[in-house]
Amino acid sequence: MATRVTTGAPAVIRATDAHDAELIQRVRQRDDRAFRALFDRHAPTAHALALRIVRQRQLAEDIVQETFLALWRSPEAYDERRGSVRSWLLGTLHHRAVDVVRREEAQRRRHDRALAGLDLSAPDHAEEVVLELARDSERRAVRAALETLPPEQRAVLEWMYFDGLTQREIAERERLPLGTVKSRTLLGMRRLRAALAEDEG
């Protein structure tokens, strides 16, 4: 099946963009209520992503705090021409988290110690779990879009994004030609973007 190439941001991202843009304008004017609104909106996903990557609760919290502290102190660093507030925040956090993982050789630790003692589905305090009901449909849509990818493409995207592996490391670990990993990355990203856009339609 040919991948439909689309342009523009997926619908699931667009849904919150307008309000985020308004909020970040207010944050630039030091409006703490706007910052709280952005935090409430994006911190749970950011925290989940940090936990998924670093697998250490305190470290994940530090990364979330640093990411949002940077936003609070330098909201002008966000450039709307480069994408949505959410993709910027999550991208920033992702860079921090992956960097931490690589610096601390956490890949080895995670495989050895995995999630021992850390059950992400049952955090310490029930109140820490925020089920964003309004976002459930969005989450389901993204998961459905991801399911449309061939397993080998999906795996490559997840190994990179969630496990902090580079394409070369994946090629070595999976004993695949590097070119194969690269093509799976590109095709997987194109197909995911197309599936997300299709959901919009």
Binding site: T7, T45, R52, E61, R86, E132, R193
Partner: peptide, 25 residues
């Protein structure tokens, strides 16, 4: 670049959100 950033960020949305401790904000 925008498309790549947005598509990658969508992967994070597949995770169940976990509210950070209230003390962070």
């Amino acid at each position: 670049a925008r498309e790549a950033a947005e598509t990658a960020a969508a992967l994070a949305l597949t995770l169940e959100p976990v509210a950070p401790p209230a003390g962070i904000i």
